[in-house]
Write a protein that binds this DNA or RNA. Structure first.
Lengths: 328, 328
DNA sequence: CTGAAAGCGCTTACAG
DNA sequence: CTGAAAGCGCTTACAG
């Protein structure tokens, strides 16, 4: 059917070993190299990567396991990962887990069967805490989330500081009754909650927080209910872009004025946050840098498996917009 | 290093053929099956997919080639494709071409080396028109774009009708001087332009159109310039979500009131279009359905290679919002 | 520099 | 139902 290295060797009048060496830029005389290259061009030969991987025991493939590629944070991260990976001659297998530990386990098994060189993983809290990284057979770089028990490299945001920064910002604008909406499946939500609580306590204020499933729908429902209560907050923080989106929808549905009746702020500088009036105040994550750093870290780990574990902690950037304007 | 089928056979006291049959649900006695399963569990054995692919001559892999996964249209399509693919036991290799024909050629070559079962492809116009699908060695399903010369299955939007629908909508709202911003690399832009022209001509109106590179930045620059001209349009149509985003940014920068001074409408019901005041009137594409249909079409093609070519043409849905309110 | 040979880890006729 | 053997398409010591 398709032409193999044997066909090319026959056509060029050399051994398959020589063809293989030409393809792999090994030591070959100019004369034979020319003959082989002509035969390759003439036959339209393409090396079979499955055979190459099997024989060389190197898959040159990495896995990228995230909750949902439709989350703009992961969309951007994945694009950055792929760019670095392809440039390094590695392929990427993308997996969407929907924050479901069963799917996470299934994809980790698949990664083993693919004999991947390594995995970049945004794990749920449940998996991050229980994962036996050593038994996996490949290195893992955690992104976005990392449990305290995770014994592997990681690229993270300084979540506590960023959340505290958001609180300080709102306090500086005159808000006191600040509520927080946090995701309940990731360590990220927990850390941002911790930063939120710290900053509120530091100001001698109570820290009202609610934990929800990490989807816009769940956040919308929770915010709707909360804002109808007697002691509803005067400012609301959402711990990621999806939750912030849900909060905005709830607020619009209820006809609540922002920031007049309620100030809003959150994480992730998704494109809609700039365009939704009056503009959302957010912590921008360096999404490209997170993806790039994770992939580079993985490549370095593959080169030196014994190097000490590293955590890269990146700072968020506060983008001030109308949704948190001074209390009037 | 890692355990192979041979180790499992040894441990279970059977031949490798029997282990292979158990794994592949072949005919094996209950007794041997139990022994093998115990050995698999005990050894933590994972079959090597590269070996399996090489030997069985079936990669169970498909390629998904798009311009940029960060474009929300492709984000959603890719998620739908992956869901259907994984459920059918196939893996997906995602490739971002940035509308660059060289990258398209490179990735098509990679797909050949991966011996993929097939490819789902959103090609640039240049590639769609010149591609020798038959010589590729695998079936292709085109999505979003398809040249007239493309001899392959396709899942498309009814672009002409949708664009005309947008024009009719604006005409019905009292707008006459309608301009259009179209992408210059895809057949999609060309088709939407054709529908735009038809509808405008049908109404006896001139059809002012500009073609730009398919990015928000290019659209923003073009719109900025256009809106400063003497005969600037009173309504603007953008042929996809990225271009509409650019147009909105230009309009905001210039302090132009929407729809007071300029009506706006476009394609793609991206999340920001609902939230950006006064809400953008758009043609919503059935993104999940496009991805699902493309993957199913590819699976059917793999089952029956000789079936006649098919084009599935899906209708868009007009979502009316504030940006195209009646001329006051 | 070059080729013959072994072998990566599987699957699949072929016999029994 | 079961096993021995061949072979998928490569790469890589090993000799020369």
């Amino acid at each position: 059917m398709t032409t193999s290295i044997k066909d090319v060797a026959l056509l060029a009048g050399v051994s398959v070993a020589t063809v293989s060496r030409v393809l792999g830029n090994g030591p070959v005389s100019a004369a034979l190299r020319a003959k082989v290259e002509a035969a390759v061009a003439q036959s339209g030969y393409r090396p079979n990567l499955s055979a190459r991987r099997l024989r060389s025991q190197a898959s040159r493939t990495i896995g990228l396991i995230v909750s949902d590629i439709r989350n703009p944070f992961f969309t951007s991260v994945s694009r950055a990962v792929e760019d670095v990976a392809y440039r390094a001659g590695m392929r990427v297998i993308l997996c969407n887990t929907d924050e479901n530990p069963d799917k996470e386990a299934m994809y980790l098994r698949l990664m083993q069967e693919e004999r991947v060189s390594g995995v970049i993983f945004a794990a749920t809290r449940a998996t991050a805490d229980s994962l036996d990284v050593a038994g996996l057979g490949f290195p893992v770089v955690m992104i976005d989330r990392a449990g305290p028990a995770a014994r592997c490299d990681a690229v993270l945001l300084d979540n506590r500081t960023a959340a505290a920064q958001l609180v300080e910002h709102l306090l500086g604008r005159g808000y006191r009754r600040i509520g927080g909406l946090f995701g309940n499946t990731s360590s990220t939500g927990a850390e941002r909650h911790a930063g939120f609580v710290e900053a509120m306590r530091g100001a001698g204020l109570p820290a009202a927080a609610r934990f929800v499933a990490p989807s816009a729908e769940a956040a919308q429902a929770a915010a709707s209910a909360w804002l109808r209560e007697a002691d509803a907050p005067e400012a609301l923080i959402a711990s990621n872009g999806l939750l912030l989106l849900g909060a905005v929808k709830a607020v619009r549905e209820a006809g609540i004025a922002v920031p007049g009746q309620l100030a809003l702020a959150g994480f992730d500088n998704d494109s809609w946050t700039e365009l939704a009036d009056p503009g959302m105040t957010v912590i921008e994550q360096p999404v490209d840098e997170i993806g790039r750093a994770a992939m580079e870290m993985l490549l370095e780990r593959l080169e030196r498996p014994e190097r000490p574990l590293r955590k890269v902690v990146l700072a968020g950037r506060l983008v001030e917009r109308g949704s948190s304007q001074r209390r009037g």
